[in-house]
Simulated assay, not measured.
Amino acid sequence: METEISTLFKEAYEALNNQDYESAKRKFDRIMELSRGRFPEAYFEACFKLGDVFFEENNYRGFFKCSMRALKHVYGTALYEQGVNRMKHVLYIIKHNEALPQLAENMDPLLVQMKERPDLYNFVLAVTMLAAGKREEAREIASAIGDKKLAAILEELFE
């Protein structure tokens, strides 16, 4: 299994370098399928790399969903901290590209996935509200987030 995942990573990176985004997405998706629950580092990296592909395609919602899935699966680990930092930088770019409204739609399935992690759930909900222009509701939800790094990301988005 580890050999198959390694091979898929190599193929996915090659596809990404060749701007063959559809092939890269399929490969990263397959890595996520094989590594979920067994190899958290591989799952985490595949989620973020799939998110990077979506970002390259200006599909910021796809990026956000992949990033949040990665964070959920490594919650409370060093990888979680790394992932929060990665997401912070990309959300900053999304905001400055005035593309935050893309994150206002179709987040219900992601919210369901985040239910067991209240801080992640509230973060997704607050970002969604903010993206929809509901600043007061977003601020109220953000006040319930105990994770200081997630709260700091939201504060930057509010500015």
Rank of each mutant, 00 (worst) to 15 (best):
E81L: 13
L8F: 03
R30I: 01
Y121G: 01
E136G: 02
K95N: 07
S6G: 01
H96C: 01
L157M: 11
H96W: 14
E22L: 11
F28S: 01
Y13T: 08
A142Y: 09
F123C: 02
Q113E: 15
C47D: 09
N58P: 00
F48C: 13
Q82S: 08
T3R: 15
A12F: 10
R61N: 10
R38Y: 09
Y80P: 01
P40S: 11
A15E: 04
D119Y: 14
L100C: 05
K49F: 15
L157R: 04
V90L: 10
A152P: 05
K148R: 15
G133Y: 14
E136Y: 09
E33K: 02
L157H: 05
T3L: 13
P109G: 06
K72I: 15
E57T: 07
Y92N: 09
R30P: 00
R135E: 15
N17I: 01
L154T: 09
S67P: 01
A151P: 01
F54S: 08
D52N: 15
Q19A: 13
N122W: 02
E159R: 15
N17L: 07
A142P: 04
K148D: 11
A24R: 05
Q102M: 14
K72E: 10
E11M: 12
A104T: 03
S67V: 05
F28P: 01
E156K: 10
E81R: 14
Q113S: 08
R117L: 15
S143D: 13
N85Q: 12
K10A: 14
Y121I: 06
V90H: 01
R26M: 09
G62W: 11
T77Q: 06
L154M: 14
C66I: 05
E105L: 09
L150W: 12
E116I: 07
L91V: 05
H89P: 00
L154G: 06
L34A: 02
E98M: 09
N106W: 07
K72H: 11
E116G: 01
M1Y: 03
E57F: 02
L103A: 07
A138M: 08
K95Y: 05
F44K: 08
S35P: 04
L91Q: 04
Q19G: 00
T77N: 03
A152H: 12
N59V: 06
L125E: 12
H73L: 06
R26Q: 13
